[in-house]
């Protein structure tokens, strides 16, 4: 451990003791701010699973606030370890809620949704996280299918090993009309230049809709336009994409 890190560690501990004694929001905010870097690092680490980086940063930042609120400096665990665990927990939950749906075939999606509900009720009933075998029994699916659905639920990490862009795939599946039709490398390559031709706001709206699964009214609130307007822009952008992809595809395949 470097001197600097050690000093920081002592500072952190002192701040936590002060926070416990005074409940001063200024102290809390200083602790949160000091650890936002960790939130950003972790968000970046899990950014390639089909969820926008900015959303992950927000989930992770809130988790840092939660960590600061819940941390007990007397328990002998490093704050950063505790915070990392909390942030990963919240990111997992976030992915479970939305980051998974795109690639999985519908049957896996449905099982996954059901697993979410069953996991919650079984967890309450049992007072612990259910096993794969218990989930299989409760849903009537095989253990293998349960594992498959859980894997789909985590999305996947691209990082240095795999660098495909899930947002494009998502969109591709919508432009193609059904899930499989656009799911080839060739078609994804066609989509990127088509997407780049759209205005930044249109790109952003598509990203919010398909990358992030927001509703039209949510997008309206984010972008600051009416829901009707969002609806029109979405329809027009999709139509333009469809046209340029079809044209490019025709040229390519000649």
């Amino acid at each position: 451990m470097t001197d600097e890190a050690r000093v920081q560690g002592e500072d952190t501990k002192a701040l936590f003791l002060e926070l416990a004694a005074t409940r001063d929001t200024g102290v809390r905010d200083r602790l949160v701010t000091a650890h936002l870097g960790l939130a950003h690092q972790l968000a970046r680490r899990y950014a390639n699973r089909g969820e926008p980086y900015e959303d992950l940063v927000q989930v992770a930042s809130l988790a840092i606030v939660k960590s600061v609120d819940r941390f007990d400096p007397e328990r002998g665990v490093e704050f950063t370890t505790f915070a990392t665990r909390t942030v990963i927990g919240e990111l997992k939950r976030h992915f479970r809620d939305k980051g998974w749906a795109v690639r999985a075939p519908r049957r896996v999606q449905e099982l996954y949704l059901e697993l979410g509900k069953v996991t919650e009720s079984l967890s309450q009933e049992l007072g612990r996280s259910p096993t794969v075998a218990e989930l299989a029994t409760a849903t009537g699916a095989s253990e293998e299918a349960v594992l498959e659905a859980l894997e789909a639920g985590q999305g996947y990490r691209t990082s240095s090993i795999d660098a495909t862009d899930r947002n494009e795939e998502t969109l591709a599946s919508h432009i193609g009309g059904d899930d499989a039709s656009m799911d080839t490398v060739e078609d994804r390559e066609l989509l990127a230049p088509a997407l780049a031709k759209l205005a930044p706001r249109e790109q952003r709206i598509l990203q919010l809709r398909f990358g992030q699964g927001l509703t039209q009214s949510e997008i309206a609130a984010r972008v600051g336009i009416s829901q009707m307007h969002v609806s029109r822009l979405l329809a027009a952008s999709l139509e333009r994409l469809r046209r340029s992809v079809t044209e490019a595809g025709a040229v390519e395949r000649r």
């Binding site: 929001t25 809390r28 905010d29 949160v32 900015e54 927000q58 809130l62 609130a221 829901q227």
Partner: peptide
Amino acid sequence: GGDLPLVITEPRILKVFEITG
């Protein structure tokens, strides 16, 4: 289709909203 506007003026309360985006 609705919204949840907040009313806040106290900088100490606003701060945590700012920090967390």
